[in-house]
């Protein structure tokens, strides 16, 4: 059973966040998980929008999917600012949300469970796939940002996976577009195999490690997902689910934003 955060809770967390006033300009940017932190609008060309009447908090809005023009615009605004990026976060879902050609598992130092009957693949194989999807681009964007002398660059951890497979299936069934798409490919949303939760969790942990490693390589700060948003295993707590398969809600975003501002802007 998925319980979504009521508006009252969202306002409470938002109020807590609003009390932090950054002294230096803060720019939030990134891919779709950024929308948990702030409402985003399609802007072409990309443009900064102030998030508060008073203060230095901004979001860089642009077109979806993000394109080179978006990252160039971020670089153009970066001088002297604290740049906060929510990069990717769906790499593990892009390739592996559904159990594709074979059931696999891999060694993880975060999740001990391993299904020996599944094909065991190397962690480097998963890493290569994540890099191919979009992490290679982060490797290009960060040095460009650094060259513009920002006050700091911060990468923010992305939402953990959602554990309850059947709840996810129900969410899928609410998406007519996807159901039609699946049907055209001969798939039934009701029956399609979703990758085991513990494997999705492993991939997410690996993704966080990779983003942290890239951050470190370029002298950027990495802020992991606050543990209060996760259950004891690391899955996203259900009260922070956005009603789709991959994203977190604004309550999640408010807590993450508070953590970010505490570290970046005080």
């Amino acid at each position: 059973m998925v319980v979504y955060a009521p508006d009252r809770d969202l306002k409470d967390t938002a109020a807590g966040t609003a009390s932090i006033q950054p002294a230096t300009k803060v720019i939030l940017a990134g891919h779709s998980h950024l929308t948990a932190l702030t409402v985003n609008h399609v802007k072409n060309p990309p443009a900064l929008r102030a998030l508060r009447q008073h203060g230095n908090l901004h979001v860089l809005e642009g077109t979806w999917p993000r394109d080179p023009a978006y990252w160039r615009a971020l670089a153009d605004h970066a001088a002297g600012a604290h740049v906060v990026i929510v990069w990717g976060g769906n790499e593990h879902n892009v390739s592996f949300f559904f159990q594709a050609a074979f059931a696999f598992d891999f060694l993880s130092n975060k999740v001990k469970r391993l299904v020996p009957s599944f094909q065991i693949v190397s962690q480097s194989r998963i890493r290569r796939r994540f890099n191919e999807i979009d992490l290679f681009e982060l490797d290009r964007v960060l040095p460009i940002l650094n060259a513009r002398m920002p006050a700091s660059v911060t990468l923010v951890g992305t939402p953990p996976p959602k554990k309850d497979t059947e709840a996810l299936r129900k969410l899928l069934e609410r998406e007519p577009y996807f159901c039609d798409w699946a049907a055209q490919l001969g798939q039934s949303v009701a029956e399609i195999k979703i990758t085991e939760p513990h494997i999705r969790l492993k991939m997410w942990f690996l993704l966080q490690d990779m983003i942290a490693e890239i951050s470190e390589r370029y002298g950027a700060r990495f802020i992991p997902v606050p543990s209060e948003l996760q259950d004891e295993d690391g899955y996203l707590l259900e009260q922070y689910w956005h009603p789709d398969v991959t994203h977190a809600n604004a309550a999640y975003g408010a807590i993450v934003l508070r953590k970010v501002l505490e570290q970046v802007a005080r």
Partner: peptide, 15 residues
């Protein structure tokens, strides 16, 4: 093979 395509489609759609 199509399951792989669907994973990608799902993420793109949600984004």
């Amino acid at each position: 093979r199509r399951a792989g395509e669907l994973s990608k489609a799902l993420s793109e759609r949600e984004c």
